[in-house]
Structures are given as C-alpha cells and as structure tokens.
Nucleic acid binder design. Structure first.
Lengths: 146, 146
DNA sequence: CTAAGACCTACAGTAGCTGTAGGTTCAAGG
DNA sequence: CCTTGAACCTACAGCTACTGTAGGTCTTAG
C-alpha cells in the first residue's frame, strides 16, 4: 500500500539533485530509507515531506545547522514552540543585516558606475574607487564582511 | 629606501588574516614578494596597495574571479575602461537580485513569526509554514536558490 | 533479450578562506 | 651574548553545502 518513491522522483519533487539527498542522508538530516532488492533507495511520503521541509527551510536561508535544530523540534512535537520562534527570529535578524549590507553595496556600485568616464583604465572611476583605501564611508573595510 | 612590510603588518593594514595573504599569493592574486635572509616575506607599498584593492573589491561582493579580471585591467592601464564598467554592472545586477531575494525571505519570516501562537510545536506557524510544500507565493521553491 | 537510463559507492572538487602541527626567525630584555 | 616569546615558515586538514566523476549494477521498455 505504501508508495515507493525512487531517489530520482524524490529529488525532482524537491527540486534538487539526487546527490543532495544522499548527502542529507549521510549527514543525518534524512533517515536511511528502505532499499529495494537491488539495493536502491525507496522513499515513502513521510521522507519526501521531510525533504521538502528541509529544502523549504534552505530556500528561506536557514543554515543546515538551523534546519537540524528545526527538525529536532519537529521530531518532538509536544514541546513549546518558543524554540522554533527563536530560530526564525535569529534568522530574520541575519536576513535584515544582509539586506542592509547589500543596499550599501548597491549604492557604492551605482556610484562607481555613474562616474565611469568611458575613457582609459587609468582614469576609470570603478578602478579608482577600489584603489581608494578609505572609501567614502558607504562600506567600511574593516567590519564589512559577514 | 623601500619600506619592508612584514606579512603581519600587511594583514593588519588590510584587516585580514596572515593566511589570507599567503592564500592570495598561492592562487596568483598577489605576486611572490621579496624574502628576508631568514625566508620571511617582505612586502612593499605597491603590494599592500594591491592587497587593499583586493580586499575592497571582496568587501563589495566581487568574486575572486571578478577581482582577478579587475586586476588584469589594472595591470594594463592603457586600455578602455568598458571592461571594468561591465564587471561592475554585472556585480550590480547580482546584488540587486540578492536584495530582492532577501526581501522576500524577510517577508516570509515575518509572516511566520507574527503567526506563532506561543503554543506547542505541533501548532507552530513557523513549522507549519516550512511544512507547506506550496508556500504562499512569496518564495518559489524551484528557482529560488541562486 | 538487449539497451538505455536510473541507480549504486566512493571519492575529488568547488569557493574562500581558516585552523593546526611542527618547526624557524626575529627583536627585545637581562 | 643568550634567552624568551612573538611572529614567521611550510604543509596540510577542515569548514559549508553541495556538485561532479569514475566505474560499476539494476530496472524497465521495446
């Protein structure tokens, strides 16, 4: 009665590569599935749901460690949901920081491009801007990297 | 007359690790510097300027390949600056795409957090949202990953 | 029965560093 | 002059999150 889903079908359903499933299994995010007589993996609905959960979380920018934490919550559904909430909030803060950082980059790049004279490299503003050690305060060289 | 700058001083000036300089040398972004009698690297101003250029570009989100391209332009300063302009524009497009993607993530995360009931995991909206295969159109699961 | 395609394991490679082990050199203090 | 400790050296392993490759096996349609 159980559907037997091949690794290729599961990967297609999740929009990822076959290798990615094997990798998730290897690092313990997915359980070892049943095998056919010929040793090929056979997944069930629940496994595919778990995979979709993982992929969805990854699409939302959660690290594999965060996904692992979320899955451990899912595996114990009677606890309070504060932990899941906290993980999402941490993630939100990080996303906001990345957005701020990228907006600053965008401004800096637009400034560089706007001033490109179309002349020679030696006069090019893009290169000049990168040569300036100091920058113009839009991006500080010291703490700018995540 | 030349200043002799140690690798530690150069790294400090650029706000990166000593290993990073050795790595850049290894992959050909920085030239092999002079060595002391005791085989220690001695950099000159020009080397440090090149390093600062690299770090600045990295801070702006350029890949090492893009940095490599920009440096090859710097090394031939009499050519037209169209190439540098094109690299910066490509980078700008990528940055804008990343921003759009992150804004969608932010909205999705805020929605998840807003609806967290504070109850049990089994009712938690954060988890529910991740379990929904379909999502609510904010982030498409298929093409969402860069 | 055969051939193509999907699957298997095992391992190497990607980016961009970072960390470690085990040894050498340099500069300052005694 | 000698010692001590920081900074340096090489070489290599490890990190994240996969992706690709080689060489072989299984399944399924014709």
């Amino acid at each position: 009665m159980q559907e037997r889903i091949t690794i290729g079908q599961a990967a297609a359903a999740a929009g990822c590569k076959v290798q990615t499933l094997r990798y998730y299994e290897q690092i313990g995010l997915l359980p070892h599935p049943l095998r056919s007589e010929g040793n090929q993996r056979l997944y069930r609905r629940a496994d595919v749901d778990r995979l979709l959960f993982i992929r969805h979380a990854r699409d939302l920018g959660f690290s594999l460690q965060a996904v692992r934490d979320l899955l451990s919550l899912v595996d114990q559904p009677d606890q309070a949901c504060d932990a899941a909430d906290a993980i999402a909030k941490t993630q939100l803060v990080e996303v906001e920081q990345r957005i701020d950082r990228l907006l600053a980059l965008k401004a800096a790049l637009e400034g560089m491009i706007r001033q490109c004279s179309g002349g020679k490299i030696s006069d090019c503003r893009v290169i000049q801007a990168l040569c300036d050690e100091v920058g113009r305060g839009e991006v500080s060289p010291r703490d700018a990297r995540r």
